[in-house]
């Protein structure tokens, strides 16, 4: 669990800001407080959705069905492309770290990459972790990426950015619990039971960001 959630896990995340670069440019992230607001919003929308998908994959739902469900929950083509690229990079690291026939099968079925949260959940499963662990990893990633990026983009005090993450911990607990609960229900009811919270501003900003010619982060 710690290895999987470690920001240094070599799965390509360091080159992505989780929308923080666009938000910084638009003036929506300026300091630690606005970073916290951004991360809170992302945690309860994109983070919750990703956590649900990851928990469901860890619980054993068909990853191809979940991959379709992830597409349905990702209206922005730029973010779909990002999710698949990161999914493929995570797949590479995951298969080297926790070899598994289920990971091999998903890699074969989605050679261009499956959505990252689905790969993350299946990776957790390969590492013998449960749905709550997968949900935690996905939820934490949803906020740790933007926090790290904000430090680089704004020269924000790294202690302040880390404190933001610590303050979000109780909410991360709630998001992970909701996601794991939804994953349990999805085993009977199908992927419709999974959270589908969306963040239109993140989607719109991601589309803009993809057109920039000068940027530090890939997304």
């Amino acid at each position: 669990m710690l290895v999987l959630a470690d920001g240094r896990f070599p799965a390509g995340g360091h080159a992505h800001s989780g929308g923080a670069e666009a938000a910084v440019a638009a003036g929506r992230i300026r300091d630690a407080d606005s970073l916290e607001a951004f991360c809170r919003g992302r945690l309860h929308t994109a983070g919750l959705t990703a956590a649900g998908l990851a928990a469901a994959a860890a619980a054993g739902l068909d990853p191809l069905v979940l991959d379709d469900a992830a597409d349905a929950r990702t209206p922005s083509p730029a973010l779909r492309a990002t999710a698949r690229r990161l999914g493929r990079q995570l797949m590479r690291a995951a298969r080297a770290t926790w070899p598994s026939s289920e990971l091999d099968a998903l890699a074969a079925a989605r050679p261009r990459g499956a959505h990252q949260p689905v790969v993350l959940g299946l990776t957790a499963r390969a590492a013998a972790l449960g749905p709550p662990d997968a949900a935690y990893a996905a939820g934490y990633e949803a906020v740790s990426g933007p926090a790290t990026a904000a430090v680089r983009l704004l020269s924000l005090d790294p202690f302040d950015a880390t404190a933001v993450l610590a303050r979000l911990a109780p909410e991360l607990d709630q998001v992970a619990a909701r996601a794991a609960d939804a994953a349990r229900r999805a085993l009977d009811e199908g992927p419709g039971a999974l959270p589908a919270a969306s963040a239109p501003l993140l989607d719109i900003a991601a589309e803009h960001h993809a057109t920039w010619s000068v940027r530090l982060f890939a997304s």
Partner: peptide, 21 residues
């Protein structure tokens, strides 16, 4: 072109996944 998120040495040493792709 590979994008490196402000960390060129990470992309060639610590997390080489994007370059391998």
């Amino acid at each position: 072109a590979v994008e490196t998120g402000a960390c060129p040495h990470t992309a060639i040493r610590d997390d080489i996944s994007a370059n391998l792709e």
